[in-house]
Design a protein around this nucleic acid. Structure first.
Length: 423
RNA sequence: GGAGAGGUGUCUGAGUGGUCGAAAGAGCACGCCUGGAAAGUGUGUAUACGCCAAAAGUGUAUCGAGGGUUCGAAUCCCUCCCUCUCCGCCA
C-alpha cells in the first residue's frame, strides 16, 4: 500500500509510474488526494471541538472539587452541542477514512525506474542467460514419463486421495524432495539466513499484511470454519513475523529463511502447459526474506538474485534471469527478477524463482518500521525470493540429466540423497 | 467439548470516575563516578494523525476491538475477539 502523504506530494510521478504498470484506473489517484484533503479538514474540525469539550470537562472537574457547583452546572449546559458535533464529525471522519482505505488498497506498488514498459511476459527483459542447454537423445522423455518409468511420482494416487495437482512422491522421488529441501536450507543458512519453521495457515491480518488480501483472495485455500488461509508461500508467515514491529537500526538487516509447502488454488489455469510438475496446487519451497534499510534494498535484491543463481549453477541447470516488465509484475512488487530453468525435454523455460523488492509497500500495510538515525520511526523495505521452488527444479533435473543408464543426480545433492543415480 | 481466570507502555506490574499517556521497578540510551568495568547516581525513554515551510511547539486519538452511560472512562454497562489455567479427548 502506498503512503497517502507520498501520493499527495508526488501526484504526477505516481501517475507516470502506474502507467508503466498498465494500471487501469488512474482516476483513483486524484480521488485519493481529494479524500485525503477531506480527511484532514474533517479531523481538524473534530480535533478542535474535542479540544473545547476536553477543556470544559477539566474545568468542571476543578469547579466541583472547589465546591462551585453552580458554575460547573453552567458550563455543563454548553456541552450537549459539542457532544453532538463530535459524534457527527467522528462518524464523518470514520467514513472518509474507510473510503480512503478502500481506494488505497486498490493501487499497486510503483515500479522501479528500471522496470521495462510492457504488458505481456514476452516483453520481459532477459538480463542474462547462463549454462549450456543439453542435447538430449531423440527418445528423451518429459519428466512426467520419467517419473512414471522410475516410479518417483504418482499423480494418479494424488488424484485419488485429494485431486489433481497434489502429487504423491515415492521412493527416490521422495528422497530427492527431502534432499533438495535440506540442500537449499543449508545454503541459505550459509548465506546468513536464520531458519524459521512456520504455521502453514495464517489469519486475515497476515494475508492483508503481505498483500494477498483483499485482491488475491481466490488464489488461496480458505478454511472457513476457523477463518484461516493456507499459505501460498512462506513469504506470508515469515514477513508477518514482523508485523507491528519497530526494529532497532542495528537489527537490520533481518534475514530469515524457511521451508514450507505452498498451497495455491490456481483457479482457471488448467491447460496444455500444466502437465506433470509444471503447475501444482501443493508444492514445496524454500523462501528467503530480508527486511532492510531503504538505502540498501536494491543492493540486497542483487545479492538475493545472486544467491538463487548460485543454487541453479551448483545444480548444473541452464537458466536465465528476467527483469519483469510493468504488466507482468506482481501487485505488490517494485522490481522483480524471475529465474527460469531450461526444460530440455519440453523445450521451454520454467519459472523456478521470483525475487522481489517491495520497498515500503508491504511494510506500510504491516506497520513494520525501524528507528532511523534521527531516532524517528521509518518504514523498512521488505524483499523475498524463492530459493528455490522444488517441482520445476525436479522436472528439469529429471529431464536434463537423463541418460541410458538412468538419471544422474547432481554432485552437490549426493551427500543428501545418498545415491548418485536414479535407475 | 465442559468450567474458570484474564487482556494496561519494551517487560513485570499499580491503578474502580476528573489532578492518568498512565505509579513503581526492570530494561534500554546518554551523562556523572571509575585506570577500565560492576555497583552507585542523574536525566531521558510510546505510537499515529492533524496544525506549522520546518525545528520548537501544540491539538486529537490510543490502556484487546467496537458500542453505551457521563460534563468527564484504563476505571461503570453491553457485544465481540484473543490468551491462560483446570477437566475431558487426542498426536
Amino acid at each position: 500500500m502506498l503512503q497517502v502523504s507520498y501520493i499527495r506530494d508526488n501526484r504526477d510521478y505516481v501517475l507516470e509510474r502506474l502507467a508503466v504498470k498498465n494500471f487501469k484506473q488512474p482516476g483513483l489517484v486524484d480521488e485519493i488526494i481529494q479524500l485525503d484533503e477531506k480527511r484532514r479538514s474533517t479531523q481538524n474540525q473534530s480535533d478542535s471541538v474535542s479540544a473545547q469539550a476536553n477543556a470544559a470537562a477539566k474545568q468542571i472537574g476543578e469547579l466541583m472539587r472547589n465546591g462551585k457547583k453552580d458554575e460547573a452546572e453552567a458550563i455543563k449546559a454548553n456541552t450537549g452541542v459539542w457532544k453532538e458535533e463530535i459524534k457527527k464529525l467522528t462518524e464523518e471522519l470514520n467514513a472518509v477514512e474507510e473510503e480512503l482505505q478502500q481506494k488505497l488498497v486498490l493501487l499497486p506498488n510503483l515500479p522501479h525506474i528500471s522496470v521495462p514498459k510492457g504488458l505481456t511476459p514476452e516483453e520481459n527483459e532477459t538480463v542474462l542467460e547462463n549454462g549450456e542447454k543439453p542435447e538430449l537423445p531423440p527418445n528423451a522423455l518429459p519428466h512426467w514419463e520419467l517419473a512414471a518409468k522410475y516410479d518417483l511420482i504418482d499423480f494418479e494416487l494424488g488424484v485419488k486421495i485429494t485431486g489433481a495437482g497434489f502429487p504423491v512422491y515415492k521412493g527416490k522421488g521422495a528422497k530427492l524432495q527431502r534432499a533438495l529441501i535440506s540442500y537449499f536450507l543449508d545454503q541459505a543458512e550459509q548465506a546468513g539466513y536464520d531458519e524459521r519453521m512456520l504455521p502453514l495457515m495464517v489469519n486475515e491480518a497476515s494475508g492483508f499484511g503481505t498483500g494477498q488480501l483483499p485482491d488475491k483472495e481466490g488464489q488461496m485455500y480458505f478454511v472457513g470454519l476457523d477463518n484461516l488461509y493456507l499459505i501460498p508461500t512462506a513469504e506470508v508467515p515469515i514477513t508477518n513475523l514482523y508485523r507491528d514491529v519497530i526494529l532497532k537500526a542495528d537489527e537490520l538487516p533481518v534475514k530469515n529463511c524457511g521451508y514450507t509447502p505452498c498451497f495455491r488454488r490456481e483457479a482457471g489455469s488448467y491447460g496444455a502447459h500444466v502437465r506433470g510438475l509444471n503447475r501444482l496446487h501443493q508444492f514445496d519451497k524454500v523462501e528467503i526474506v530480508q527486511i532492510v534499510h531503504p538505502d540498501d534494498s536494491y543492493n540486497v535484491l542483487e545479492n538475493m538474485s545472486k544467491h538463487v543463481q548460485d543454487l541453479l549453477q551448483s545444480l548444473g541447470l541452464p537458466y536465465r534471469v528476467l527483469r519483469l516488465c510493468g504488466g507482468d509484475m506482481g501487485f505488490a512488487s517494485a522490481l522483480t527478477y524471475d529465474m527460469e530453468t531450461w526444460s530440455a525435454a519440453q523445450q521451454r523455460w520454467l519459472e523456478v524463482s521470483s525475487v522481489s523488492n517491495f520497498e515500503t509497500f508491504q511494510s506500510n500495510r504491516l506497520k513494520l518500521r525501524f528507528r532511523n538515525a534521527e531516532g524517528k520511526t521509518q518504514l523498512a523495505h521488505t524483499l523475498n525470493g524463492s530459493a528455490l521452488a522444488l517441482p520445476r527444479i525436479v522436472a528439469t533435473l529429471l529431464e536434463n540429466n537423463q541418460t541410458e543408464k538412468g538419471i544422474k543426480v547432481p554432485e552437490v545433492l549426493v551427500p543428501y540423497t545418498k545415491f548418485e543415480w536414479i535407475d
